[in-house]
């Protein structure tokens, strides 16, 4: 079980590393951090407190806090979707925090509604399924950054290259084709 202070420490460290701040309202911030700890307890990972998680890691990986959309939201609006992370001008009160549109693609959002065999009842901890009857329909691909060469294995390319900050459009898919040129023969001893 993760403690609130650990969640706070983790968020503070991440904010510092990226030059961000945490939500300026202490009570709102505590609610978000409590939400993260609750999600980590019930799902096994800290998914965004303000988004509906499926409880399946492969469906929720893009909304693990800090989510994939955070940096783009901070750049455009000054704060992320749940408003845990904010930009300096927001921290200083120069920009106010208001609800912002969801950047997560609809196809990923709807995965939290996909029909699965198990059901969770109210107030019972959600048990992450290990072997669902529904096979994962996510197609993972290999991508590389054409600017710096960074490679990753994901459903989509990242919004921004974590190494050189190139945008998603710079990424290209790596397609590996195999061709057997000569038949392989086992050499008898």
């Amino acid at each position: 079980m993760i403690l609130l202070k650990e969640a706070r420490q983790r968020a503070e460290n991440d904010a510092r590393m990226h030059g961000y701040y945490l939500h300026p309202d202490p009570e709102f911030l505590r609610n978000l951090l409590e939400g993260l700890t609750r999600n980590e307890d019930r799902y096994g990972y800290p998914s965004c407190p303000c988004r509906l998680a499926s409880g399946k890691f492969e469906f929720d990986r893009d909304i693990l806090c800090p989510c994939e959309y955070r940096d783009a939201d901070l750049e455009e609006f000054g704060f992320c979707y749940c408003a845990l992370y904010v930009r300096k001008d927001v921290h200083e009160g120069k920009t106010s925090i208001v609800p912002i549109p969801e950047r997560r693609p609809m196809k990923k959002q709807t995965r939290a509604y996909a029909k699965v065999v198990e059901t969770s009842t109210e107030m019972q901890p959600h048990v992450p399924s290990t072997e669902s009857e529904q096979p994962s329909n996510i197609e993972m691909k290999m991508w590389y950054c054409r600017q710096c060469g960074y490679m990753c294995f994901r459903e989509d390319p990242p919004h921004v290259c974590p190494i050189c900050k190139a945008k998603a459009e710079i990424f290209a898919e790596i397609i590996i084709t195999t061709q057997v040129l000569t038949p392989i023969r086992r050499v008898k001893e």
Binding site: R51, L52, E102, Y113, K115, T119, T121
Partner: peptide, 25 residues
Amino acid sequence: VDLCSEEDREEIKKDILKRGGRLSY
């Protein structure tokens, strides 16, 4: 919604979308 069964989630999704809303809370 996060405490709802999968069936109820599906119902909520349909309810929101038929009213022209988005799946955000």
